[in-house]
Amino acid sequence: MAKASWEVNNVLIVGVGGQGVILASEILSEVAMRSGFDVKKSEVHGMAQRGGIVSSHVRYGSEVASPLIPQGEVDVLLAFELAEAVRWIGFLSPKGRVIASRQRLVPPIVSTGLASYPEDAESILQRETWAPVLVDAQQLANQLGNPRLVNTILLGVASRLLELPHRTWRRVVSERVPKAYRELNLAAFEQGRGILGSSSVS
């Protein structure tokens, strides 16, 4: 994933309203800015709270023009939900990687019979993308004692693929979470970071 410094890094963070996609993209953008990069981040607010699709584009590099990542140029697709991971794989670059939480959120429209959930989401990711990283983030979060740690764990995983200083990650994560949960979030971040050994970084 190493890129020349003038190239733009593109991270697409996706999920469902209420999962914490926006907070995760805020943290990543802040880390990138403090690491000296130009940063742009774009998402759509408004209907997000109501179970809708949420996607946040984060781009950083020496100079970023478009706030939206061009289709086919996503380096890291960080998905908080399986069907959402599948929805966006068309945005990946040929060498782009998917990190997806194994969580499934089935919208009510499925129960009315008007749509069906892609039950084979995992195998689609395995088949269509290169070396996807599937994470039991919910389970890990519960083991750590708080289901809300899912997004910090996923950021930890992503941090392995993004060349930004570890120290800056830790500092921004500490600042962006409630004081009482600081240590817990840092532990969650490290747990996520440990999922991909440095050997699997390419």
């Binding site: 109501r50 069907a83 929805r87 794989i89 749509a115 959930y117 269509e128």
Partner: peptide, 19 residues
Amino acid sequence: RRRSRVPPGAALPRPPIMC
């Protein structure tokens, strides 16, 4: 133009709904 790799039928609609 790069072609999309999303398999047909995989795009799940998530219309916004009342809480």
